[in-house]
Design a protein around this nucleic acid. Structure first.
Length: 812
DNA sequence: GAGTTTGAAACT
DNA sequence: CAGTTTCAAACTC
C-alpha cells in the first residue's frame, strides 16, 4: 500500500510551516498564489519567529482565555457527508490540552447534505468522520462549502501574539479545494481531515493550476504540539493519505510550547497554491510541520472530509523502518525520506499517514499507521494516477522486519532534499512504499508532479528556515552503508511508517535544527519503537538521490559496501560547492579522538570517515550511537560547532570571513595553521591573532600570494606538459603500432629496428660530411641531410610495405 | 618518514 | 572566562 504518494512526498517539503502564508492568503482567494520567497541565505532567514496563533486568512481564532471548549463534530456518512471520517477509528486529537484551542471547520458548501453533529464535551472536541477518526481535540470542524473555520482557544502556551490579544476566529475558505487538517496535540495524535475537491463552483475562483489539471488542491492543517507530537497510530484504521503532488501551500501556525507542558498546539496549514508559485512563508518557532498526505479523487462528493487511501498501493513489507535522515554539511540541505511501512491488505485498509515535521525537534516525521480493521476511505483517484515509477529502498529493520522505501523514478522523486541555509545538514525525505513500488512499477499513470524544486520553509522551535528543495535532476546516488549499529536501526516491529522527523522530542539533538551535526542517527521516539531516525552525512543523501534503485538495507542489515562512505563534497569554509567538489577531502589521521571530536576534519565537516588513515574510528555508521553522542556533546559545547566557520560574504568571496576569527600567535597568519589563511581569506577585526600579516596591504602576504600563484602556474604548466607529452606518446604508439592487415594498414614498426636506425644515421652523417667537404652553407647542408632522411624513410616504408604485402600473401 | 611547530579544540 | 592540555594538521628536515 502506498503510504504516501510520491507527489505527496514531493510536496511535503514545500512550504512547511508557512504561517505567514496564512495571513497573506486572502479569504476570498485562499488558493491565490502567493509567491513564496526563494530560499535565502541563512542570514536572511529569521531564526526564530513567534507566529501568531491565528491568522486572519486562516480564521484561526485563538482565545486568550484558555477555556476548555470541547466540541465534537461528527459526520455520519462517509460518502456523502462532508466529513467522511469513519467513526470506526477514532483518533484523539492531541490538540486538547490544558489550553485547548478550538478549531472550527466550517464547510460552507451549500450542497453538502452531510449531517454535521457537534457536541459539546468537557473533554474536548472530537470530530468523527466516516467512522474513521474521532477528533478529540477541542476544536470544532464544521464543513460548509469547503470552508473551514478554525477557532482556537488560545492555550496558555500560545504564542505571545496569541496571548496578547485573542484573535478573531478565522475562516479558511477551501473553495474548490481540499482541506486537510492535521492536528497533532499533546497526545501526539494527528488528525487528518480532507475535504474532497468539489469541483468548480460558481463564485469560486479556480487557480490556473486547477483549470489546467483536475488535480484537487489541498490545504493541510496540522495542529499539534511539538513536544508531544506523536505519530498517529493505530487503532485507527489504516489511512493512506496521499498528497496531491501538485500544489501545496503549507501554512503552519504553531505555538511554541514547552515540551513538557501539555497542550502544545501547532497549526500547520498546507494550502494548495499554484504549483509554480511559492507561497510566502511564515514559520512558527516550534516547528512542527504536519502534513496529511491525503489525496482524494475529484469524484468524491464535496464537503467530505476524507481520509483517503491511495488505491492500488500496498505496502509490501517493512514493519520497521529505519530512515536515514542525513545531514548535509553543505549549507543545509534537508531531505526527508519517508519509509513506507508494510501493511497487509493495504488496498482495503485506510492508512492514516500523518506527516509531521517537527523542526523544533529537528525531526521530520512521516508516519503511517495501519490497523487490521479495514477502514473505508475515500480513495483518491488522482492518487492512483499519480503513482509513478518508483525506486525501492530497503532499509534494514530490527527483528527481521524489513523496510522498503519506494522512490519514484519519475521526475518527481520521493527523495527530496531540504536545504537549511546555514546548516550543513541534509535531510532526505523518504518515500512511502506502494504496492507497485515494490516492483518498481507504477500502478498508474502519473498525472501530476512537481518537477521543480520548491523552496520550503522549515521553522524550528527557534529557527525558521527556507529550505530549497533540490531539483530531482541534481539528486545523487547514495551508496548505502551497512547499518549494523543499533542506533541506525531504529527499529520497530510495527508496520508504522514514519520518516521525516520525529514528532517526539529528541534529546539527542536539542540544538536548533540548523546546528544539527552531520551524520546523526536519531533515536526512536520515546514510546514508539517503530520509528527510527538516522542522520547521515549528506553524501549519503546525495548519492541516494542519484541512485535509480537503492537498497539501503535488507531485512537484517545493510550489505556492507565499500563505497558507502563517499565523502560529500560540501561547501567547506565558505567555499562554494563547486570548489569543494573539485578537490576531495583529505583523509584524516586521527589516532586518539576516535574521529568523534572536532579535531577530526571529517567529523567537523559532517562527514563519515572514508578512506582515512584514522585509528579506532567511530565516525561511521557502525558507531552511530557514539557518534550521535559526540555530536550532541559538541553541540552542547558549541551550538554552532558544525556550522561553517567561514561565513558567506555579502557580495562574493571578498566578504567572507571567519566566524570566530583566528588566534594565531606565531605563524603570522600566513601559514595554513591559520584558519583564515587556510580559507584564503584575510583576517578580520574579530581575529585575535598576534603579529598578523594576513591583511590586504601586507607585503608578506602579497609575496606569498605571488609565490603561490607562481607555484600554481607552474603546477598547471607541468600538468599541461605532462598531458601533452602523454598524448604525444600515446599518439606515437598508435602510429607505430604494428598493423598487419591487408591493404592500407599501418606499417609494422618492427621495421624501424636498431640496424635500420643506425643505417639511417650513417646515411645522414655521410650526407653531412659530404656537405661539409663541399663547403656547402649551413642551410644547404641541412637541406641535404633532410633530403637524405627523406630518402631513408622512403626506403624504410618501401621495405615495410613490401614485407607487409608478402606477409599478407602468405597469410592468404 | 620522523620529528617539530602550530593553533583549534577540549578540558580544568 | 582564562589557563592548560590534548589533538591533529601543517610544516621542517
Amino acid at each position: 500500500m502506498d503510504v504516501v504518494s510520491p507527489e505527496l512526498n514531493s510536496l511535503l517539503p514545500d512550504e512547511i510551516m508557512d504561517t505567514e502564508a496564512i495571513e497573506d492568503v486572502p479569504q476570498s482567494q485562499p488558493e491565490s498564489t502567493t509567491s513564496q520567497s526563494e530560499p535565502s541565505d541563512d542570514t536572511s532567514i529569521p531564526m526564530e519567529t513567534d507566529t501568531p496563533m491565528a491568522s486572519e486568512n486562516l480564521g484561526l481564532c485563538s482565545d486568550a482565555t484558555s477555556t476548555e471548549h470541547t466540541r465534537a463534530l461528527t459526520t455520519s456518512t462517509a460518502t456523502d457527508s462532508p466529513l467522511s471520517i469513519s467513526p470506526g477509528s477514532q483518533l484523539p486529537i492531541s490538540i486538547s490540552s490544558t489550553s485547548s484551542p478550538i478549531l472550527t471547520l466550517k464547510p460552507t458548501l451549500a450542497t453538502s447534505t452531510a449531517t454535521t453533529k457537534t457536541t459539546d464535551s468537557v473533554t474536548g472536541t472530537s470530530v468523527t468522520t466516516s467512522g474513521l477518526q474521532k477528533l478529540t481535540a477541542p476544536f470544532t470542524i464544521s464543513a460548509a462549502n469547503h470552508q473551514i473555520i478554525l477557532n482556537k482557544v488560545a492555550s496558555s502556551q500560545a504564542t505571545e501574539a496569541a496571548k496578547s490579544a485573542g484573535t478573531p476566529p478565522q475562516v479558511i475558505k477551501q473553495e474548490g479545494q481540499k482541506l486537510l487538517v492535521t492536528a497533532i496535540g499533546k497526545s501526539g495524535q494527528p488528525i487528518v481531515l480532507q475535504l474532497p475537491h468539489t469541483g468548480n463552483k460558481p463564485g469560486i475562483s479556480q487557480t490556473a493550476a486547477d483549470t489546467k489539471s483536475p488535480a484537487p488542491q489541498f490545504k493541510v492543517v496540522t495542529i499539534g504540539g511539538r513536544s508531544d507530537l506523536k505519530p498517529v497510530v493505530g487503532s485507527v484504521g489504516n489511512q493512506v493519505t496521499t498528497l496531491q503532488a501538485q500544489q501545496l501551500k503549507t501554512v503552519q501556525i504553531a505555538k511554541k510550547t514547552p515540551a513538557s507542558s501539555a497542550a502544545p498546539i501547532k497549526f500547520i496549514i498546507t494550502k494548495t497554491v499554484n504549483s509554480k508559485t511559492l507561497s510566502p512563508q511564515t514559520s512558527v518557532p516550534p516547528v512542527i510541520a504536519g502534513r496529511v498526505l491525503t489525496q482524494s479523487s475529484p469524484v468524491i462528493p464535496p464537503r467530505t472530509i476524507n481520509l483517503s487511501e491511495p488505491h492500488n498501493t500496498s505496502i509490501q513489507s517493512l514493519p520497521g523502518k529505519k530512515i536515514a535522515i542525513s545531514p548535509l554539511k553543505t549549507p543545509s540541505k534537508v531531505t526527508v525520506v519517508s519509509v513506507a511501512s508494510p501493511t497487509s491488505n493495504a488496498s482495503q485498509k485506510s492508512v492514516a499517514l500523518p506527516v509531521n515535521v517537527a523542526l523544533g525537534q529537528q525531526i521530520l516525521t512521516v508516519q503511517q499507521s495501519t490497523s487490521a480493521s479495514p477502514v473505508k476511505v475515500a480513495t483518491s483517484q488522482s492518487a492512483a494516477q499519480n503513482i509513478k515509477p518508483v525506486q525501492s529502498v530497503a532499509v534494514g529493520g530490527v527483528g527481521g522486519s524489513q523496510f522498503k522505501t519506494i522512490i519514484p523514478l519519475a521526475t518527481q522523486p520521493n527523495v527530496q532534499q531540504i536545504q537549511v541555509p546555514g546548516s550543513r545538514f541534509h535531510y532526505v525525505r523518504l518515500v512511502t512504499a506502494t504496492t507497485a513500488s515494490s516492483t518498481g512499477q507504477p500502478s498508474g499513470p502519473s498525472t501530476s508532479s512537481i518537477q521543480t524544486a520548491k523552496p520550503m520553509v522549515v521553522s524550528t522551535g527557534a529557527v525558521r528556515m527556507s529550505v530549497p528543495i533540490v531539483p530531482p535532476q541534481t539528486m545523487k546516488q547514495v551508496a548505502p552503508k551497512p547499518l549494523t549499529s543499533a542506533a541506525q536501526v531504529v527499529t520497530t516491529t510495527q508496520t508504522q511508517q514514519r520518516l521525516i522527523m520525529p514528532a517526539t522530542p529528541l534529546p539527542q539533538i536539542q540544538p536548533n535544527f540548523t546546528n544539527l551535526p552531520p551524520g546523526t542517527v536519531l533515536a526512536p521516539a520515546p514510546g514508539g519503537g517503530n520509528v527510527g531516525y538516522a542522520v547521515v552525512p549528506a553524501q549519503y543523501v546525495t548519492q541516494l538521490q542519484q541512485s535509480p534503485f537503492v537498497t539501503l538495507a535488507s531485512s537484517s542489515s545493510f550489505p556492507a559496501s565499500a563505497g558507502i562512505q563517499t565523502q560529500a563534497r560540501l561547501p567547506l569554509n565558505g567555499l562554494s560547492a563547486a570548489e569543494t567538489t573539485s578537490r576531495p577531502r583529505k583523509p584524516c589521521n586521527c589516532t586518539k579522538s576516535q574521529c568523534l571530536k572536532l579535531y577530526c576534519d571529517c567529523f567537523a565537516n559532517g562527514e563519515f570517515c572514508n578512506n582515512c588513515n584514522c585509528n579506532n574510528c567511530f565516525n561511521n555508521l557502525e558507531h552511530e550511537t557514539e557518534r550521535l553522542k559526540a555530536i550532541k556533546t559538541c553541540l552542547d559545547r558549541n551550538p554552532e560547532a558544525f556550522k561553517p566557520k567561514i561565513g558567506k560574504g555579502k557580495e562574493g568571496e571578498a566578504d567572507r570571513r571567519h566566524s570566530k576569527g583566528c588566534n594565531c600567535k606565531r605563524s603570522g597568519c600566513l601559514k595554513n595553521y591559520c584558519e583564515c589563511y587556510e580559507a584564503k581569506i584575510m583576517c578580520s577585526s574579530i581575529c585575535k591573532c598576534i603579529g598578523c600579516k594576513n591583511f590586504e596591504e601586507s607585503p608578506e602576504r602579497k609575496t606569498l600570494m605571488h609565490l603561490a600563484d607562481a607555484a600554481e602556474v607552474r603546477v598547471q604548466q607541468q600538468t599541461a606538459a605532462k598531458t601533452k607529452l602523454s598524448s604525444q606518446i600515446s599518439d606515437l604508439l598508435m602510429r607505430t603500432t604494428p598493423v598487419v592487415s591487408s591493404g592500407g594498414g599501418r606499417l609494422p614498426y618492427t621495421f624501424v629496428t636498431k640496424e635500420v636506425l643506425e643505417a639511417t644515421c650513417e646515411c645522414l652523417l655521410e650526407q653531412a660530411k659530404k656537405a661539409e667537404q663541399t663547403h656547402q652553407p649551413r642551410a644547404e647542408a641541412e637541406r641535404m641531410i633532410l633530403e637524405e632522411f627523406g630518402h631513408c624513410l622512403m626506403r624504410i616504408i618501401s621495405s615495410a610495405g613490401k614485407a607487409k604485402a608478402d606477409c599478407a600473401s602468405i597469410n592468404c
